[in-house]
Design a protein around this nucleic acid. Structure first.
Length: 715
DNA sequence: AGCACGCCGACT
DNA sequence: GTCGGCGTGCTC
């Protein structure tokens, strides 16, 4: 009997496509199978999400599935439901989500190989062909090439049109086949041979909390928790819970914000639990990723550690998902597909009837608010000693380094103690300007001033990475260029070197190569560097050693952004940097700022999360921001501002017609109003519930004809 | 997302 | 008059 399969493809359309299953594939084609299907002129990898007996409507002729890839379905049906809900929630494509869940090598596509026909070979020898045709044909003289290669090699504008013309004339032959990745030998997987350590130092209040959680988790129902407490205390609770889940024979998904944190965690798990751990992240080689994915799929790994993308690990029998450092914004993925792994973890845990533990010492206000309201907040009491923190008002200072900070640095240098300086801006200055005519060099493709990188003598666009040599004189009037406001770490480095010429100073930034970064970190670790200056990236290094003076410069830069989370981000950034203070007599933190009284800075400085929370929550309530509302940001992008503007206005009027429950902000130029030559217009929709938005957007979003990205915010 | 189809300006 | 640009719309 003929069966039909609904197949989802990685396309920006929400619908599934129906294919008929040929008799020969009927036993292999199952729900969750990875299949090859003909789609237009191409062959694509898709996923069967449903089988049916009958066609839906009789008027379309259906194509056959070409092939079922792999022996077993790649997705369990509960995984399909989970990803479906996730993509609905974020208005992103289900197919994109499914594709992102697999190692890249699992996705096969047809590749067109172009070669000359006999007639074509003759034609090359003859004269009288148009320039472009001649160029292409002689290039193909003795070998076949892929279209992609030809595109890169020859600079022909409309290659595909040219090719189809030549194919019609019978001069070239286009062979469509499936690109298969050759399997190289598996690299040996290094495993730590560390001795098992059975050290679980749970103090008695933490033990009580952990027991309470464990007894709920034992029931194998969806049970969320927000574990609020210091890193150290959280960790012991995690280990305790993980052991209990392992005893039940269930598996654990452990999410962390940064790939950099995964390796250390894996070693810890292997050491302390003796368990089979798998790592899953995008920086693994393609082959490694495939191997780890297969190990997880086969059930050989019991604990899976990774960043946000590990949310899609093929674990079955899931007992617990941990989302550590819940406040970290890197759980949000803006594009392709757009989702937030924190909400994703909720959806998956719910689907799998598993436990869910968010952990943080400084939770996002929305998470804290919800946890407290719905009664799943678990507090681990007993904070460490308060740190010594001083806020220095920068407004009366002449230099970049205040006199007070310089004095404290001098003291530490004398004692041969290490110093960290954080400043969240790369380069030397955020722009250059002409001392005479005020000309500011801007990026040609983005509507933004170019940052000045003095060491490399370059002007760099921090958004699209466009680079150009920095000229000393104004191209317009020839006067000297001077640095604008907004200093970066290079300027701080220069000034510190001027004040402390004897000391060893280094700057750590994204612009450096990986080996250089590693060298600096190692140098600082060994005490060969006295003062280390760095951006947020430095604060994200897992193995950055602590220092006895942590200086935080101008944390208020984040506050100038038009972002409802600006205060929270500032509070979190300062708190995170403060963690690098050595626990030692005389260790101190100096925050140098022009906004010494802003609550996010003061309360971070006095480590008063609760006060920050209350104040920020109040702001969110007054302004009707999450957690009291849901926001959807729709970003329209296109070549012409006119067209993009018209699209956005049209979209908004349709939203207005469709609902009175949606508040509209904009349309307005996006914060980065032009990126890589594309104009950007932003619209923000605000509603009391997500459903208010869904009711309207599910239909309307498909009618947008320009490139768009949609971001959902509820944290 | 690709890719084909279809309608208007600059060339043999 | 054709070529070839890219706007519009479909892909089971």
């Amino acid at each position: 009997m003929t069966l039909y399969a609904e197949v989802v493809l990685s396309l920006p359309v929400s619908q599934a496509f129906t294919y008929s299953i040929p008799e020969s594939l009927s036993t292999k084609a199952l729900v969750g199978s990875r299949v090859l299907v003909p789609f237009g002129q191409r062959i694509m990898t898709g996923f069967i999400v449903r089988l049916r007996r009958k066609k839906q409507s009789s008027d379309i002729k259906l194509k056959d599935i070409v092939e079922v890839l792999g022996e077993e379905p790649v997705f369990a049906s509960s995984f399909l439901s989970f990803t479906r809900k996730l993509s609905d929630y974020y208005y992103s494509s289900w197919g994109d989500v499914l594709q992102a869940s697999l190692p890249p090598s699992f996705i096969l596509k047809s590749q067109v190989r172009v070669s000359l026909t006999e007639k074509g070979k003759e034609a090359v020898r003859k004269e009288g062909l148009p320039q472009e045709e001649k160029e292409l044909l002689s290039f193909l003289r003795d070998k076949e090439y892929s279209i992609l290669f030809l595109k890169r090699k020859l600079k022909i504008k409309n290659l595909s049109a040219l090719l189809s013309r030549l194919e019609k004339k019978g001069l070239v032959h286009m062979l469509r086949d499936i690109k298969r990745t050759g399997h190289k030998k598996a690299p040996s997987v290094s495993r730590s041979e560390a001795q098992l350590e059975m050290d679980f130092s749970l103090d008695s209040p933490s033990r009580k909390t952990a027991d309470e959680m464990a007894s709920v988790l034992g029931k194998q129902v969806f049970s969320p928790f927000l574990l609020y407490g210091s890193q150290e205390k959280r960790e012991s609770v995690y280990f305790y819970l993980i052991r209990r889940i392992l005893e039940q024979g269930r598996r654990i998904l452990f999410l962390v914000p940064e790939i950099a944190l995964t390796q250390a965690l894996r070693e810890q798990f292997e050491k302390r639990l003796g368990e089979k751990v798998a790592l899953l992240h995008s920086r693994l080689t393609e082959r490694m990723r495939e191997l780890e994915w297969l190990r997880i799929k086969k059930g050989e790994a019991h604990v899976i550690v990774g960043p946000r993308s590990a949310l899609f690990a093929p674990v079955d029998n899931l007992g617990l998902i941990v989302v550590d450092e819940e406040q970290d914004e890197s759980y949000f993925q803006p594009e392709n597909p757009s989702y937030d792994a924190r909400k994703g973890a909720w959806l998956r845990a719910k689907q799998e009837k598993a436990g869910l533990v968010y952990g943080s010492a400084i939770p996002s206000v929305s998470a804290f608010y919800r946890a407290r309201r719905r009664g799943y907040l678990m507090e681990l009491r007993g904070r460490g000693e308060k740190k010594r923190v001083e806020i220095v008002d920068d407004r009366r200072e002449k230099g970049l380094i205040s006199r007070r900070l310089a004095e404290r640095i001098a003291t530490k240098l004398k004692k041969k103690e290490s110093i960290l300086v954080f400043l969240n801006r790369r380069g030397y200055a955020s722009y250059l300007l002409c001392s005479n005519c005020n000309f500011v060099p801007r990026c040609v493709r983005c509507d933004i001033a170019l940052a000045y990188h003095k060491k490399e003598k370059k002007l760099i666009c921090h958004y699209c990475d466009y680079q150009t040599p920095a000229e000393e004189n104004c191209p317009d009037c020839g006067s000297r260029m001077i640095r604008g406001r907004g200093v970066g770490i290079e300027a701080v480095e220069e000034e510190l070197k001027g004040i402390f010429p004897q000391s060893r100073i280094a700057a750590f930034a994204t612009d450096l190569k990986r080996e250089e970064q590693e060298k600096i970190l190692q140098g600082f670790k060994r005490g060969e560097i006295d003062i280390l200056i760095g951006t947020q990236l430095l604060a994200h290094q897992a193995d950055l050693p602590q220092a006895s003076l942590v200086s935080i410069l101008y944390p208020e830069t984040l506050l100038t952004l038009s972002d409802y989370k600006a205060s929270q981000k500032t509070f979190q950034a300062i708190s995170q940097m403060m963690r690098f203070l050595r626990k030692k007599e005389g260790a101190e933190i100096i925050i140098q700022t022009a906004l010494p009284h802003h609550f996010s800075i003061c309360q971070a400085a006095c480590e008063d999360y609760m006060s920050f929370f209350e104040q920020e929550l109040n702001f969110r309530r007054l302004m009707k921001y999450p957690p009291f509302t849901h926001l959807v940001e729709v970003l329209f992008q296109g070549e012409s501002l006119r067209f993009v503007a018209r699209q956005s206005r049209g979209f908004l009027s349709r939203v207005r017609d469709a609902s009175r429950d949606i508040e509209i902000l904009g349309p307005a130029l996006a914060p980065i109003s032009k990126l890589r030559g594309k104009s950007r217009i932003q619209v923000i929709l605000k509603a009391k519930t997500k459903k208010d938005l869904d009711d309207v957007l599910e239909k309307l979003l498909q009618s947008i004809k320009v490139r768009k990205s949609i971001h959902v915010f509820d944290l």
